[in-house]
Design a protein around this nucleic acid. Structure first.
Lengths: 194, 194
DNA sequence: GTCGATTTCTACCAATTGGTAGAGGCGGCT
DNA sequence: AGCCGCCTCTACCAATTGGTAGAAATCGAC
């Protein structure tokens, strides 16, 4: 793997767990077995590196979502696909979810950049939700609120892994799968029209 | 108000919005019209200050919750009370919610402290949820997952304010009240037994 | 007024931060 | 060999970080 890509990968992990402010270029270079000047050779500044990491993270996130969600035939399949993607990321790349949270924090300069990057996907999801609402296939009123609720519920439950880890409890894959199944049941019931 | 209390207040706002790493004692002192040495007079170190802030934040949060939630007669009143408290905090003290997120981030040293501080309330809520589940007054299976889902949903929607602000949109109080009402409808439907 | 405690100040400090300048290694190409 | 472009290095820098030492100011009590 190219040095540039290695830097992006390690930076994502570090930014996602320790935070951007909590990650120094020195520490990052140490993890890579390099000097920080080599990092600054590939990326002109730290914020440039952060933006590149965000860009790549958003790209992979969208790619994973698109692959599963876009060719879903109804809203429920979209929800199911999103849950699958987010949980897979929570297991395989927990730092990515942490990074998304970090970047969407108010005051972050890249928040705008990230949301504009994701806005296409968000609007598409909202649109298909609105249609489903209008046709009565989904229970609810405001598509935007529904979307936010779904998103925050999924993210919250998925990041429960991290919270548990922070409390010193290592969650098993089995318990994670159970939680995912329960979350799906919960969402199905919540979405089902009366 | 005492200087010590002023420091705690300003620190909460700063830590909650800019983050702990993103807040220097110098900047904090500047906001207070002091020198940072005066801060270090009241709190021996920065992490000591952070812990004090967390402690106070958790205390107010719990106090607000207890006041409304504990004398609720059924689970639905508890949920309604929690939503009311969180939304009120999102309007009056948005930094507090940001701080709670910051502190519950994995890798944070105070995460354990915070959760142990809240654990009493969490267990009480989980307990009453379990009873409601057993008696069939609430639809669901795992009380713990249900609790997490409720919590993350409420938090997510409440912090939508911050996300919108980060996108440059100032949400009106009216729209916030609407969202709260919609969230309550959403939760009521999701909890109602069949 | 003055004593003593509480509080806030000036003056430093070592360590770390992100970032610059430029030398040298390394490979392939002619 | 010699050159060149790519990469990584050493050496350094100004600014900022959290924190210390101790001098002044401020205060109420007597």
């Amino acid at each position: 793997m190219s040095t540039r890509q290695r830097i992006l990968d390690t930076a994502l992990d570090s930014f996602g767990t320790t935070g951007v402010d909590g990650t120094s270029l020195d520490a990052l270079a140490r993890d890579l077995g390099l000097r920080k000047q080599s990092i600054l050779y590939y990326f002109p500044s730290k914020v440039a590196l952060f933006q590149a990491v965000i860009d790549e993270a958003a790209a992979t996130f969208i790619a994973e979502l698109d692959e599963i969600v876009l060719d879903a035939r109804d809203v429920w399949e979209q929800v199911e696909g999103t849950v699958r993607v987010v949980f897979r990321l929570a297991v395989r790349r927990p730092a990515l979810l942490g990074l998304l949270r970090e970047a969407s924090r108010p005051g972050s300069t890249v928040a705008v950049q990230l949301t504009s990057r994701l806005s296409g996907h968000i609007e598409a999801a909202q649109h298909s939700l609105e249609i489903a609402l209008k046709e009565g296939r989904v229970r609810g009123e405001d598509a935007r609120l529904l979307l936010f609720s779904l998103y925050s519920t999924i993210m919250g439950v998925a990041t429960e892994v991290e919270v548990l880890r922070a409390m010193g409890i290592e969650p098993s894959l089995r318990s994670l799968a159970e939680r995912r199944a329960e979350l799906l049941r919960f969402l199905r019931v919540a979405l089902q029209p009366v």
